[in-house]
Nucleic acid binder design. Structure first.
Lengths: 333, 333
DNA sequence: AAAATCTTCGCAAGCGCTTGCAAACTTGTT
DNA sequence: AACAAGTTTGCAAGCGCTTGCGAAGATTTT
């Protein structure tokens, strides 16, 4: 059984309140009394019971990390840096994997409302927007969004400029002299995906290349999706000379299909992927990709939520991070 | 401000204790009283404050997931299934990434001792053994180990039979008629690695192939490690005809080196990897691997710790799961 | 040296819940 | 009709901590 405040007070020969004030660096304790108490605390390795502390102060120092699928691309990296930042500020992360299950989602979002956690971070994906909204409308629910965006309601968010990413990728291909660039993407109702499309279009416009609807292949974000996309594209009248693929799995499938078709990358088709997972680096040929600042994403999210909890101002409610182009073999001239 | 027990009691016109008993399905509440209370609870969507509940019952329904590096291979998969299982039993996982930092490790392990969490799961890696021991010696610290093993002290553990994995991989290569099988592995002081070596040796013995120390390449578990391993092996007098690689990253590096050297897989060298990450499937050629039952690992770990918490017996203190061989191109005849 | 001010400290209530115990109420038995 | 036995409910203490407020002590002021 761990020591309690009472025990420390008894040992030190002072009242519990004095010990409490000493430990929490609050005024109202004499210098030598404080030192004596701290000495005893150190000696006995006393650590206050967070439950009791939380109950009294109405805070848990817990953060809910709500994510549809923990195994998402780059998520471990993001989460790792999130945990680190949170931890340094004295917070712990609790995992809430929703599996895209509406009920679980709701339960988890409730954690905040029920004062079980001090705040929540929603990471990526298709978390039901109305759930979020309902939560957000309860004024004091603290919430930060990472790599996703809420509609109709303003919630502190940190995300990557996917339009910029799409732009970078497309421009890179255009700069290689390619003009018929196919875009293989996921469902366009996903904000992240549609932004990439925007960037793609912007790039074409800047280079005076006409946009051709045919070259946009929407499929599901999977390996098969990528695989099939290639054969779908091969059916159109004028073949593309380059591919911009918005997702890792898609890229894998696509490159497999290309090779299967007996074509060479980058000889016949240049390919640019999205997301600097290890996969894109080991695939053959190594993929040129738009890389997202994963660590920064995680760190900022943690910083944001902690600031919110402490009633500190946030610089930018929607913080947009710049992606970066990593050039490898799959797009060399 | 959420409703409290008191509020519900007032609405129902009964004492708090009655409400508490009704909610917790305890005896001593009349049927219609109970129903009436539950009705009100539902209607107001009341959820007890876990902090207060925890304080009174001395339990938090929190589990610490202690892991050296969250981004480890297959960990997201394990964690996902762990979270699911824990959650179904009413527990939440809190992330504790130690970064192999001894101080953090200690702090996190303390969470258990300080009654901040009801139990802890240590996942993989090189968590300092003496830390664990010290913790384990405190009788009532609840701890489960996943994919690692404690020395000198018996702690409930669930892990994969790596010796079996090594055996399967090696036998598979032997069955292809290969006789000079190199083993590329991580540091042998890692129990997981040394077990694979044991399996390898056992397989050789069963097939009457002499063990040759030269063919064992110990390196660090990284891509470069794998890359360099190949060139180290090429210096020995008699070249191998097959490789058993104990790790994903290692396998990537090794295959790169092999291709770089102008050799073919599986033509010149057959390769078998370990751990069925997506990487092994997308690499060229697709890797034959020993796959670990990741989901089961996570689920069992959660089940174990929850059983411990509830003072239930555990079938086997050390639960060993069977790996499985997935045959792909890299080892075809 | 007494009064006024500041500092240091302890008392006690409260955070929201659980639980042992006794009071009140049922029901069954003779 | 009276009592035993069982059931249902409420009282109150306690989990370990924080914090407002007043008491005591130390320090300064006139």
């Amino acid at each position: 059984m761990p020591l309690t405040l009472k025990d420390i007070a008894k040992i030190a020969g002072v009242a519990e309140s004095t010990v409490s004030r000493a430990i929490n660096n609050k005024p109202g304790v004499g210098a030598q009394t404080r030192e004596k108490i701290m000495e005893i605390v150190r000696e006995h390795n006393y650590q206050p019971n967070q439950l009791a502390q939380g109950l009294a102060k109405r805070e848990t120092h817990l953060l809910a990390l709500i994510v549809a699928d923990l195994t998402g691309p780059g998520y471990s990296e993001i989460i790792k840096s999130m945990e680190k930042t949170a931890n340094q500020a004295g917070y712990q992360l609790i995992i809430c994997n929703t599996d895209n299950n509406l009920a679980k989602e709701k339960t988890y979002l409730n954690l905040v409302g029920q004062h079980r956690v001090d705040g929540a971070i929603i990471l990526g994906g298709t978390l039901a927007n109305n759930n979020i909204m309902k939560l957000a409308l309860n004024q004091d629910e603290l919430l930060v969004l990472v790599n996703c965006l809420a509609e109709e309601v303003l919630i502190p968010t940190v995300l990557v400029d996917n339009a910029r990413g799409g732009y970078l990728a497309t421009v890179h291909l255009l700069e290689q002299g390619l003009e018929k660039i196919a875009l293989v993407m996921g469902p366009a109702n996903d904000f992240l995906e549609s932004e990439k499309l925007n960037g793609y279009q912007q790039a074409l416009a800047d280079y005076n290349i006409p946009f051709r609807e045919q070259l946009i292949i929407k499929t599901n974000l999977s390996r098969e999706g990528g695989y099939n996309a290639f054969f779908r594209v091969m059916k159109i009248d004028e073949l593309p000379d380059g591919f911009f693929v918005t997702n890792d799995l898609l890229a894998i499938g696509l490159t497999e299909a290309i090779k299967m078709g007996g074509y060479l990358i980058p000889g016949d088709f240049a390919v640019v992927g999205y997301g600097d997972s290890i996969i894109s680096a080991v695939i053959n040929p190594a993929l040129t990709v738009v890389a997202e600042p994963l660590q920064q994403l995680g760190r900022l999210a943690a910083e944001y939520i902690i600031k919110l909890i402490n009633d500190q101002a946030i610089e930018e409610v929607i913080r947009v991070l710049e992606p970066e182009l990593i050039i490898r073999e799959s797009s060399s001239p």
